[in-house]
């Protein structure tokens, strides 16, 4: 494969002034307490194809931030850098600065396993494991820690309560997760992410494979979870973004066009492209 010539240096080479290997405790006390995730000049490539162009964005803690924009605008790519899922894609690279509470997320020596414990993810299509409901929720916790059986049961119960699924499944925790409906499966996937004890939840179009009723229940859940987690949600659905999010970022062709409080961005966009998109004139 030929190395493309890029203006920025590849992953891990360019750094903002941040002491390497800064400990978590220091990182948890950021200078601006509101900001959870911040990026400066973040660019990304798949092979020689640049998909993100020098993004600057701050995502506030314990709020819901929606990424909107037409297909292929790079919003999912950006999401997948926050938990480094892009590591699994051959040829994916990033440059610039991306940090979570001061933790450098583009550091090539970063322990991605530990990062993904702190940053949960929910996918477009529900992807429960072909295991029991209990084992699905307990999957993540068992990866990272050793729990007493009672702690594990309590953790599974609280996670299922948090994703508003407990009432529907409490009598059949041992039955297969594949027997659940699509909406239930997606809430199970949220419970599964919550059980690990993350700070951030990434949601990649979590309702696009669901019917309207399931979508409504997931949206309500997102609004409730906002009190505990920083949530970043990618969505195609403008109404959804306006219903669930506090802040919205609009992307187009890999560039961040406009960002701001959701009600402001939807009612009074400053950019012409944003206005065309949110009013449905293209996209």
């Amino acid at each position: 494969m030929t190395q493309p010539t890029t203006p920025e240096q590849p992953l891990g080479a360019s750094r903002v002034e941040l002491p390497r290997g800064e400990s978590e405790t220091a990182a948890r006390a950021p200078s601006s307490p509101q900001t959870a995730i911040s990026m400066r000049g973040l660019s990304s490539w798949y092979g020689s194809n640049q998909v993100l162009h020098a993004l600057d964005l701050e995502i506030a803690a314990k709020q819901v931030c929606a990424f909107i924009g037409p297909s292929g605008c790079g919003k999912s790519t950006l999401l997948r850098w926050i938990n480094r899922m892009n590591d699994t894609i051959p040829g994916a690279r990033a440059a610039g600065m991306l940090s979570l509470h001061g933790l450098d997320l583009l550091d090539p020596t970063l322990d991605v396993v530990d990062l993904r414990r702190r940053v949960g993810m929910v996918f477009q299509k529900p992807n429960p494991f072909p295991k029991s409901i209990f084992d699905n929720v307990a999957f993540g916790p068992r990866l990272h820690r050793i729990y007493s059986p009672t702690d594990l049961e309590e953790l599974v119960e609280q996670s299922l309560r948090a994703s508003a699924l407990w009432g529907e499944v409490k009598d059949r925790l041992d039955s297969s997760a594949l027997g659940l409906s699509g909406g239930q499966q997606q809430r199970l996937c949220i419970a599964r992410a919550i059980a690990v004890g993350p700070e951030v939840l990434l949601m990649d179009e979590p309702c696009s494979a669901l019917d309207p009723r399931s979508t409504a229940s997931i949206e309500e859940l997102i609004r409730e979870l906002r009190a505990t987690y920083t949530i970043v949600i990618v969505t195609h659905n403008m109404q959804q973004a306006s219903r669930v999010s506090d802040a919205t970022a609009f992307f187009y062709e890999g560039k961040l066009i406009e960002t701001g409080a959701t009600d402001l961005l939807f009612t009074n966009p400053t950019n012409r492209q944003t206005e065309d998109y949110v009013t449905g004139r293209f996209g």
């Binding site: 820690r145 050793i146 059980a195 009190a227």
Partner: peptide, 13 residues
């Protein structure tokens, strides 16, 4: 529940 799930998650070794 979410908060308590987060707390329980820290209990394990």
């Amino acid at each position: 529940a979410a908060r308590s799930a987060g707390e329980i998650a820290q209990r394990g070794r």
